[in-house]
Simulated scan of single mutants.
Amino acid sequence: MRAITWEVSGSQGFETAWVQLREGTLRARGRAVGTVSEPYWISYELETAEGFVTRRLTVTAETGAGTHALDLLHDGQGRWTADGEPLSDVGGALDCDLGLCPLTNTMPVLRHRLHQAPGEREFLMAWVSVPDLVVRPSRQTYTHLGPGRVRYSSGDFHSDLEFDEEGYVVDYPRLATRLTVR
């Protein structure tokens, strides 16, 4: 298990994730603290099936208004539920994307080796906003730019991300910069 810490400029905070990659799967637990748009604490656990396809994301958020939680589950066939309720608008998505979390960019990049090999892929993501934990559909495109470099695009936003050889974000301009790996 590896510990990775990022300074998250997008939230004016920090995130640490304890991550384990094993034979096409990823398991992680993490904690983040941020001050934008309001002060919050986030705790999460992420589990993927083979091919780095999200199986489950559980998140707890604490703000000044209180604590709330999300249990986001993917059935492996493209169907999602949030706290047991079906989410038809993200049907067909393979991945979750936890807002302001650089770790969740790893799954599609590893699945298609976009940090190592040429290609461009468009994805539908089950995007989870932070700190309110609302799930929304998000169309995202990842484009290989060179070894360890991938352009992320969604709507009018794009950023050229740097990944290490294992597929973890090193630098995500305007969002996060990795501080440690252990």
Rank of each mutant, 00 (worst) to 15 (best):
Ile4Trp: 01
Arg2Asn: 15
Asp95Pro: 10
Leu70Lys: 08
Pro147Trp: 12
Val90Gln: 10
His68Leu: 13
Asp164Cys: 09
Leu175Gln: 04
Pro39Met: 15
Arg121Trp: 07
Glu38Val: 12
Asp89Trp: 03
Glu7Ser: 12
Gly119Glu: 05
Thr143Trp: 02
Leu21Ile: 02
Pro86Asp: 10
Ala93Thr: 01
Glu165Ala: 08
Asp132Gly: 03
Arg149Ala: 15
Val150Gln: 06
Ser43Ala: 14
Arg56Pro: 05
Val8Gly: 01
Met125Tyr: 02
Val170His: 11
Val169Met: 09
Glu15Gly: 02
Val169Pro: 00
Val53Asn: 09
Cys96Val: 05
Ala17Leu: 00
Val90Tyr: 02
Val134Lys: 11
Ala17Gly: 04
Ser159Asn: 14
Ser9Trp: 09
Arg174Asn: 15
Pro137Trp: 03
Thr5Leu: 01
Gly34Val: 03
Ala176Asp: 08
Gly34Glu: 00
Asn105Trp: 06
Leu100Val: 06
Asp164Phe: 06
Thr106Asp: 10
Leu73Arg: 15
Gly167Ser: 02
Met1Thr: 14
Val109Ala: 05
Ser43Cys: 10
Glu38Leu: 15
Gly155Asn: 03
Gly167Glu: 01
Gly146Ala: 11
Glu38Gly: 05
Arg136Lys: 14
Val36Ser: 13
Ala176Trp: 00
Ala32Gly: 08
Gln20Lys: 13
Arg113Ser: 14
Val36Arg: 12
Thr141Met: 09
Pro118Asn: 04
Asp95Ala: 01
Thr67Ala: 04
Asp95Met: 03
Pro108Gly: 11
Thr81His: 11
Gln20Gly: 12
Val150Leu: 14
